[in-house]
Structures are given as C-alpha cells and as structure tokens.
Amino acid sequence: MIVVNVENAEMMENPHGVDVRKLVAMEKAQIFHITLKPGEALKRHATPVDAFIYVIKGKGIVEVGDERAEVKKGSLVYLPKDVPHTVSNSGSLEMAFLVIKVV
C-alpha cells in the first residue's frame, strides 16, 4: 500500500515558480499536486505524454491548444501529449489540482 500526504510531500523546483509536489512516480504513471495562488499560472508548455488535470479546490482557466475552458472543483481536463497547455487561477482563493501523467 502506498499512502502519501500532500503536506509531507517535498516541493519540487519547477520552471513555473509555483507549489508543485510529486505524490507518485511509477513506471506507468506520475501524479503531482499543484497549488496556484490567485493570479498565478503555469507557463504554456507541452508534455511528451498524455495527462489529466483534476481540480480539487478553487477555480481557474485551462487552455489546451486553441481551446479555453473555465474549471472548478470536480472538473477533469484531458491534456493530449505534445499539445501546448496552461492553467491559471482566475479566482480570489487558492486553486489546487492534481496532474496525472500517463507514461
């Protein structure tokens, strides 16, 4: 059994300058917990693997390629590999989400 507590997971250095914590790193999947303060955003980037974002707190804007959507707690977004995307906190409270990368 693997049990990981977000508060105990070590923060990772990242090019976005935001709170990123790696929760799981396995052969076929990686899971990260990301927190964005109001006004913070991930820089537009692409990943070499398919990924999903699952919002667990707050609200924001997700852009994938030329598409843009407002998301909130409970939203799941698919991020196809090699397609540029970004996530920004558009609310007045903290936003938290999981990024699940399928390797």
Rank of each mutant, 00 (worst) to 15 (best):
E70C: 06
A9R: 14
I56F: 11
K57H: 13
I2D: 13
I61K: 15
L98S: 05
V102L: 15
P38S: 08
G60L: 06
S88H: 02
R21W: 08
A29T: 15
M26T: 14
T86W: 04
K22Y: 06
V71F: 05
P84L: 01
V99R: 01
S75P: 04
E7T: 12
G39C: 08
T47A: 03
V102E: 08
H45R: 01
D82E: 11
K81D: 00
R44F: 00
S75A: 12
L79N: 01
V87I: 15
D19E: 12
S92L: 12
A96T: 11
V62E: 03
E40K: 14
E27G: 14
L93Y: 11
G60A: 08
I2Q: 13
T86N: 06
F97N: 04
V87L: 11
Q30S: 13
K73H: 14
E7W: 07
H16R: 07
V87G: 04
V77K: 00
D19P: 09
P15R: 14
L23P: 10
M11T: 15
I56A: 06
L98G: 03
V3S: 14
K22D: 08
A96R: 09
N89S: 09
V71Y: 01
N14R: 02
D50A: 01
K43E: 03
M1L: 07
D50F: 02
V3Y: 08
R21Y: 05
A51C: 00
L98W: 00
V99C: 01
R68M: 15
T35N: 09
N14I: 05
S92D: 12
A96E: 12
E67N: 06
S75R: 01
V83H: 02
D50N: 13
L93S: 13
Y54H: 07
H16G: 04
V18K: 10
V20S: 06
S90L: 05
V6T: 10
S75C: 03
G60H: 05
Q30W: 04
V55K: 06
K72S: 13
N14P: 02
D66T: 07
R68N: 07
M26L: 15
G74T: 12
I61P: 04
R68E: 14
E70A: 12
E67T: 07
K43D: 03
I53R: 01
S90F: 06
I53E: 00
E27A: 10
I100F: 03
I53C: 02
G17T: 07
Y78R: 08
S92N: 15
L76Q: 06
A9I: 10
G17L: 09
N89F: 12
V71G: 04
E63P: 00
T35I: 08
V3R: 07
T35Y: 01
A41V: 09
S88A: 11
N8Y: 14
V49A: 06
